[in-house]
Amino acid sequence: MQNEPTDFQLLSAINTGDYNAFRVLFERYYSPLCNFAFRFLKDDYIAEDIVQEVFTKIWEDRRVIKVTESVRSYLYMAVKNKSLNKIKSESVRQEHTNRFSEIENIQVDAFVLEQEEFRNYLFQCIEKLPPRCKEVFTKSRFEEMKQEKIATSLNISLKTVKAQVGKALRLIRSCLQISYPEYL
């Protein structure tokens, strides 16, 4: 079995100008970081912009960049800081002012990183649910609909709603056990 290169290995390769390593690191973290940035920015386009800026900077500084801690926390930290700067500088500021201090207080520590990682795996597992099961589950969790309302809106019985959500939870759990064993 071929092992994926570690973040650290990738960064070392990037240091030497390996563009392919850069691509692998980018693809590994792009979507999770965009989702992280979205939490602050509430705009997926700006979120993508920020993440791309972070990576562009890494490439530009590839010769000198040194990461002492984990690459992952470096990336999340950079995305958080850039997001804050964006909010500060943009005209969107007024909308965001209230959230600004709230975000500033989010520490990019081991706990937050682990939580973020868990959420990414969780999201992927939800995405993989069978369509009907996913529909019932997301109505229940994302839209916070009551069981009765889900039943009426999908024209199914209350019993089916319960069974589908139960099934979703079981499937997500098994999916997490495989894709993210640390969850255990």
Binding site: N35, F38, R39, Q115, F118, R119, N120, L122, F123, I126, F137, R141, F142, E144, I172
Partner: peptide, 8 residues
């Protein structure tokens, strides 16, 4: 946590 990934 499912609620937190709503916007993912």
């Amino acid at each position: 946590e499912a609620r937190e990934v709503k916007n993912f």
